[in-house]
């Protein structure tokens, strides 16, 4: 669900983040202000240029000392707001979230084409995940390698839905969707047809580039060779909105 204002709100608000006094446009979200000011907040489902879903909760912050944690990507700044981005509690929550992502599906980094270029790995590093405290589910997921150029390995998918959004909002093809619930939830192409048989897919590869992990990859890559290029997205998004 896009939360951008219909009319850009150009009024300015002031707020503090981690004790730092900052000013921001009233239509900005906390995460945007943090990124502009080089305040690190982990994020996964959020991506500059795509709509906001606030699904992964890795960007949670504390607002005005309240007990309810808020997703920085889905919360707009307010006048006088006071934000904490890195308390012990937040660190604990984030670390647990990342561990759950690893425990849920099958991440075998050592053989993964994304090894060394993976956002989930970086998150694990920044959130201090040196091991996973919960038992792994060890349930096998499907690999769809039917597409000429690309492949999806659901074992590595974190259900961030970036692929779904970029395909719909930027490419305009809407090949991807989400199907199923709970641990059976997965992204699908064209009503769960094999990707290679999709009529709507234009083979543009945007989904592959925005995918944070080794779930969506190019065919023909070997271990550690899948380096993603996400530059295009902010450029396309900016051009589109300035039309």
């Amino acid at each position: 669900m896009p939360i951008r204002a219909q009319q850009p709100d150009v009024s300015v608000v002031t707020l503090t983040i981690d004790g730092q006094d900052l000013s921001a446009r009233a239509d900005e979200t906390i995460i945007e202000v943090c990124r502009e000011n080089k305040i690190p907040i982990p994020s996964l489902c959020w991506m500059d240029g795509l709509s906001v879903v606030g699904a992964c909760r890795l960007c949670v912050v504390e607002v005005d000392g309240g007990p309810r944690l808020q997703a920085a990507c889905a919360t707009r700044v307010r006048e006088g707001m006071s934000v904490q981005t890195n308390t012990d509690k937040l660190q604990r929550y984030r670390r647990t979230l990342v561990e759950l992502l690893f425990a849920e599906r099958n991440h075998v980094c050592a053989v993964c084409v994304s090894n060394g270029h993976c956002e989930l790995q970086w998150l694990a590093q920044t959130c201090g995940v040196d091991h996973v405290r919960m038992p792994y589910r060890n349930t096998g997921y499907n690999v769809d390698s039917s597409h000429e150029m690309f492949r999806i390995d659901h074992n590595r998918c974190v259900l961030c839905t970036r692929c779904v959004r970029v395909c719909d909002e930027i490419e305009g093809a809407h090949t991807w969707d989400v199907m199923g619930r709970g641990s059976g939830c997965q992204v699908v192409t064209d009503l769960a047809k094999p990707w290679g048989e999709s009529d709507s897919c234009t083979s543009c590869g945007k989904c592959v580039q925005v995918c944070p992990t080794g779930a969506l990859v190019k065919q023909g890559t070997s271990v550690g060779e899948m380096v993603k290029d996400q530059q295009f997205l902010s450029i396309l998004a900016r051009r589109r909105s300035s039309r």
Binding site: A110, V111, C112, G140, V143, S145, R151, D153, S222, V223
Partner: peptide, 14 residues
């Protein structure tokens, strides 16, 4: 079984 063949070198090396 079921893994992309390009993973085999790294898999079997392990």
């Amino acid at each position: 079984e079921g893994r992309p063949y390009r993973e085999m070198p790294a898999l079997t090396a392990r």
